[in-house]
Design a protein around this nucleic acid. Sequence first.
DNA 1: GTCAAGTGGAGGAGATTACTCCGAAATACC
DNA 2: GGTATTTCGGAGTAATCTCCTCCACTTGAC
Lengths: 217, 217
Amino acid sequence: MTRPLRADALENRRRILAAAREAFIDLGPGASLDEVARRAGTGIATLYRRFPDRQELMRAVVMDALETAAAEMRSAVEEEPEPFAALRRYVHRAIDARVAAVIPALLDAIPEDDAELTAASGEGGRLLEQLITTAQEAGTLRPDATVADVGALVVRLSRPLPGAVPRDLDIALAHRHADLLLDGLSTAAELTTPLGGPALTFPQLRTAAGGGQRPRS
Amino acid sequence: MTRPLRADALENRRRILAAAREAFIDLGPGASLDEVARRAGTGIATLYRRFPDRQELMRAVVMDALETAAAEMRSAVEEEPEPFAALRRYVHRAIDARVAAVIPALLDAIPEDDAELTAASGEGGRLLEQLITTAQEAGTLRPDATVADVGALVVRLSRPLPGAVPRDLDIALAHRHADLLLDGLSTAAELTTPLGGPALTFPQLRTAAGGGQRPRS
DNA sequence: GTCAAGTGGAGGAGATTACTCCGAAATACC
DNA sequence: GGTATTTCGGAGTAATCTCCTCCACTTGAC
């Protein structure tokens, strides 16, 4: 009986979802819903009309993130025949989509018996597992790394650094550090690729940090 | 004219400082001071008597962390002649001391003209820079990594993972990931050392996560 | 044993937060 | 273009949380 949403309502829904993802990343799962509405550029009533309560909103954010992550993994595998290269591509895409930072933070604020969510979560895990196993069988990924390791590392890379680091710099650094992580810090790794992103010193980082807004939580 | 603190007062001060560090790490710089006192197992009045306001407390936490970090770097250099090994040792010690996670988060909530703090911060940066330069000159650390990279990576490793991950597991994983980071993910690195810490799958991680308390921010 | 230093926790002022209500505006359909 | 209806925005309220002070009691130092 549910009619399709009106065009403006749909657009607003999308914006609220995106704003919620960012707010939860920056401010934690306790981010105020007024703040989410403010970031979305919409009234608070609009948010509540679309998502009756906080849990419903979180659920939608997580579902969206899980689906995006799965899609990114699939296309990475399709586009890159070499499995380690596919993994590398996925990691960078996941950072841009700001997907990994939000999933674990919200996931345990949601009832475990949610079938749809469990399915999406399992699917994502399976895809990543497959990606990793393949790369290990090809001999390009170290065999003692597990799915959880890779997942957790992507989370670590995706989360904004503490302090007032501007968003753009933060993401650029995340990419740079992803390269570093993937290549290895030690020169024992022979095929190191040149690092992308800005090469900063501490003072430069602090100076650059002055421009960003400060996360509250 | 300030007399030395009474023995019990000194112990309480120490406990408050430690509790504040943990609370700021778990809950962010906005952590409630009542919560800090609760974690320290002391009354709220005791906290306020020792640290007149939030800023003073933050300042003390940061100073403590900066000093600890500097001491760890010095002893790491002393104990390990090979510079890359010294770096590795320092990284692990920093994770245990939970030092890196708290510094950047609080540092920009404190006035920049604090001489003592600026000095300590500069000293720490210089020590790390030296450690890194030495390792690069020895040819064991990749030359395109900067101080900021290493600093930021240690921060990324030190922060607790989002979600209800128990503290012990969280720290064990941090060590494991530090090894991974230092060795490099790719098998192109020939001298990979075996990973310490638990090797978990996703489901194991989620299950284990059920036991911990949930960070609020 | 004395006394200054230290302690805990109740409590009030102020700020935040979640959520609702309703007049105004925008959209879809004809 | 006209109109019925969906959607919007923001003021308003009650409940909660946070900071911080005050003061009667306890504890360590000499």
